[in-house]
Amino acid sequence: MSENLMFPSEEWVREYCKRLTESEDYNKSGKGWKDPIMFKMIELGDVKEKTAYDSFILNLKDGKCEGSEMVTDPEKKAPFILTATYANWKKIIGGKINPTQAMLTGQMKVKGNIALLLRYASAAIAMVKTAQSIPTKYLDEV
């Protein structure tokens, strides 16, 4: 891939979904997982005018990503919702914040069955590693 993909964008999310399915680490750590996860960005600031989306959903199943959906409806729900500011998502994707620490410190808010999520915390690490592998550019940097 020669060009950096914009985060968030449909192209970035599609590429993310594809790479998750290809990731050996995610395949093994996400085995048994059944639910879609919504990734939600808040406090977009100036970036808000540059994107139609502040959320996306990944349909994750058994260590693979079976599809993705960009979300525009603010009422849209998913069994698990991970919420962070745009600035913190950038730090997480850029590897500057450990996702487990982000959850513990409240930089990333978690909604859903937390006990289940904790059992798959290593899948969250694999997901972040996969996101980090995507050549990414950010809305506030263009």
Partner: peptide
């Protein structure tokens, strides 16, 4: 062991075969 949340902190992601 796979269901144990401590695995999340392991520096190498471990699957069932590992």
């Amino acid at each position: 062991a796979m269901r144990d949340s401590e695995l999340a902190f392991n520096p190498v992601i471990a699957g069932e075969e590992d």
